[in-house]
Design a protein around this nucleic acid. Structure first.
Length: 641
RNA sequence: GCUGGCGUAGCUCAACCGGUAGAGCAGCUGAUUUGUAAUCAGCAUGUUGGGGGUUCAAGUCCUCUCGCCAGCUCCA
């Protein structure tokens, strides 16, 4: 029949529907379940509303909430639902933008009143009502001029501003009940399709992200097709809260901040400091194994150094004011490279010395705006596992490949198996010739490709002196963190006029590779705390064994056992307080110590250790040597439990 | 830095409309000498982040400042 059209599905199968039916109708032909789950569709590769009318033979792909696009549309519709509710509760509200984001959606609104949590509840209640009203969501296409007029009449100054900058002739509006909004779409079919949602928070956000503009109120929310999924999402947020390194840092006595020392300057307590030491020792050793040499430089340097390096030009906003010493200006070092170059430069280098790999756990100080400081992950003084590789141009690719390999190994060791890799290219504010940028970017690319590593290009995100590869890791609850960075630099060798003598007896300029594997030790430890939620694997646990005496009679034996374990490089602590054994066990459990050992008369007589492993509540017993062997093995194998 | 919220004992939190601070845990002391997630009793907790102001009187109101939290912007 001529008024039938053929719809081709992704698996190449076809269905036939009457011409003029909607996408939604067509999906219903495939399956009722899919029809219910459908959010939007791709029709001939174009994202489309389910309510769109089908006029000809097309290719159709149905998108549900489980797809990134489906989720996007779902959340975007939820933001419209929220906007409608806000308009009903606060009739004077003006709307700016309301997109979906990775974790839900938001809408920037301009309201006189400062929104408080009770207002969010009111809005949420109104959203529930509108969802219950089951309003149809419809698309309307009108000319840009008409749209401007309509939004102008409503006083929607932000929409008007956006419209005026669009170069399209026609724009689309989406209606639901009395509310409509400028939107590209697509959207869900009905307001009742948005079932489970929660408004999460409200915060300030500048119109168009520019500090010079008016601060609007950004209301955040999330939405899901079912209450179950919403609940799961809320649980994830609670889980993240439980793992918060700032909270665990205090509870496990790892670090703190002091008002008098200053913001963003962490203080390491014994438990945290030993964690730092373990990482430092392990990592330094790994560098030595790979042919790196150790460097060490002071925390301040004269202004001349940073004039030469260019930091005083390109990096001043991140540097602290100078310190006057004998009439000279000295700066806290914001980066290690300029000082390290002095060491490279202190003697003549031959081509045989290259690649020359220099490593240092280098502490740097950077000015961060007060609002961005955050626990250990964003601080003003931090230690980088920083290295600089001086090499010839023909060595770059090999060196980067090796560094990549090293990076992935290190991250793996610390329990991060999932990674995403990014290649950042030339930013607007940059130094160096186009040719050098080209060579450097190509080298990074080639190293990635030779190692068969999938990566994403991050345009314009490179450092001012060169392009870089960033490695972002995923933690135990799926959050992404940036740690490692590998950067190629032609600029500093030039500025410091460094050279090596080639086989031809002539001076040549080396290239520098800057790289940090874990990034900042402070931030990395913050991430580690959250990743393991404080339950560090034995090799990292600040306290590996807690020894408890059953009664005061065993106090001396416990202390001597502690000394024996410590002499064997096992980090042990003892609790010989006159408290009940249950009390002391509980205390040790809350400290997340991997092994809790109880020493009573029986153990002393038999020379055994009765202990419980973290996560297990049945104690087991073994001979002291066996116990030590077990811990050493857990350390060596970096067992996680 | 900006917007908003906040700052009370080591920690978590309380104190009506202004009437100069109180609980639990931790700590200390004593008793108990305990066998695997909290033994009992007692004691003491503080320039209410700091400075200034209003007031007869300020944890509470105003102001400056420091810090914290969420977000914006920026980043290891």
């Amino acid at each position: 029949m001529s008024n039938q059209i053929t719809i081709t599905l992704p698996d190449s199968s076809t269905i036939s529907v009457e011409k003029g039916k909607t996408v939604y109708d067509a999906v219903g032909v495939i399956s009722k379940g899919l029809q219910k789950a459908a959010v939007c569709a791709e029709v001939d590769g174009k994202l489309t509303d389910l309510s769109a009318v089908l006029e000809k033979n097309v290719k159709l792909k149905v998108l549900t909430f489980d797809t990134p696009q489906g989720r996007d549309v779902y959340w975007h519709s939820a933001s419209h639902l929220m906007a409608q509710a806000i308009r009903r509760v606060f009739p004077g509200a003006k709307f700016a933008i309301g997109p979906s984001i990775d974790t839900g959606f938001y809408y920037d609104v301009d309201i006189e009143k400062n929104l408080v949590p009770e207002d969010l509840e009111k809005i949420e209640a109104e959203m529930r009502k509108i969802s219950g009203e089951d309003l149809e969501i419809t698309r309307e296409e009108i000319s840009k001029a008409d749209a401007i007029k309509r939004f102008k009449d409503k006083g929607e100054i932000y929409k008007v501003e956006m419209l005026e900058e669009m170069d399209a002739d026609t724009v689309s509006l989406y209606h639901q009940g009395e509310f409509y909004d400028l939107c590209r779409g697509p959207h869900l079919r009905r307001t009742s399709d948005i079932r489970a949602f929660k408004l999460v928070s409200v915060a300030g956000a500048y119109w168009r992200g520019d500090e010079k503009n008016k601060m609007l109120q950004r209301v955040y929310g999330v939405a899901f097709p079912s209450d179950k999924e919403l609940k799961k999402h809320i649980e994830l947020i609670e889980e993240a809260k439980k793992r918060d390194h700032r909270k665990l840092g205090r509870e496990l006595d790892l670090f703190s901040f002091s008002n008098d020392v200053g913001a963003g300057l962490p203080l390491w307590h014994p438990n945290g400091a030993v964690l730092r030491f373990i990482i430092d020792k392990f990592e330094t050793n790994e560098h030595l194994k790979r042919g790196y040499r150790l460097f060490g430089v002071p925390h301040i340097a004269r202004s001349t150094l940073y004039e030469i390096s260019g930091h005083l030009g390109f990096y001043t906003e991140n540097m602290y004011s100078p310190i006057q010493i004998d009439g000279q200006d000295y700066y806290l070092k914001p980066m290690n490279c300029p000082s390290q170059i002095q060491i490279f430069n202190s003697s003549m280098k031959s081509y045989r010395d290259l690649p020359y790999r220099a490593f240092e756990m280098g502490t740097v100080y950077r000015y961060e705006r007060s609002g961005v400081l955050h626990g250990l992950t964003r601080v003003r003084g931090f230690t980088q596992d920083d290295a600089h590789i001086f090499c010839r141009e023909d060595q770059i690719v090999d060196e980067i490949q090796e560094v990549l390999d090293f990076t992935l190994y290190m991250l793996e060791v610390f329990g991060f198996s999932e990674k995403n890799i990014y290649l950042s290219t030339r930013p607007e504010k940059a130094v160096g010739t186009d040719a050098n940028w080209e060579i450097a970017t190509a080298a990074l690319k080639s190293a990635l490709e030779k190692n068969n590593i999938a990566y994403t290009i991050d345009p314009g995100e490179g450092v001012f002196y060169g392009p870089k590869i960033d490695v972002k890791i995923k933690d135990a609850i799926g959050r992404e963190w940036q740690c490692s960075t590998i950067q190629v630099d032609f600029n500093l060798p030039e500025r410091f006029d460094i050279s090596y003598v080639g086989s031809d007896g002539q001076k040549h300029r080396p290239i520098m590779i800057h790289r940090a594997l874990l990034g900042s030790l402070e931030r990395f430890i913050g991430i580690l705390i959250e990743h393991y939620s404080g339950k560090f694997p034995v090799w990292l646990a600040p306290v590996q064994v807690m020894l408890l005496s059953v009664s005061e009679d065993e106090a001396a034996a416990v202390e001597s056992l502690k000394s024996k374990l410590m002499a064997d490089e096992i980090r042990a602590e003892s609790d010989i307080r006159g408290e009940s054994i249950g009390y002391k066990v509980r205390d040790a459990i809350t400290k997340k110590i991997p092994y809790i050992a109880v020493i009573g008369k029986k153990e002393i007589e038999e020379g055994t250790v009765s202990f419980r492993k973290r996560g297990e509540n049945k104690p087991q017993s073994m001979k002291l040597d066996e116990f030590k062997g077990m811990i050493h093995e857990a350390v060596q194998k970096r067992t996680v439990f």
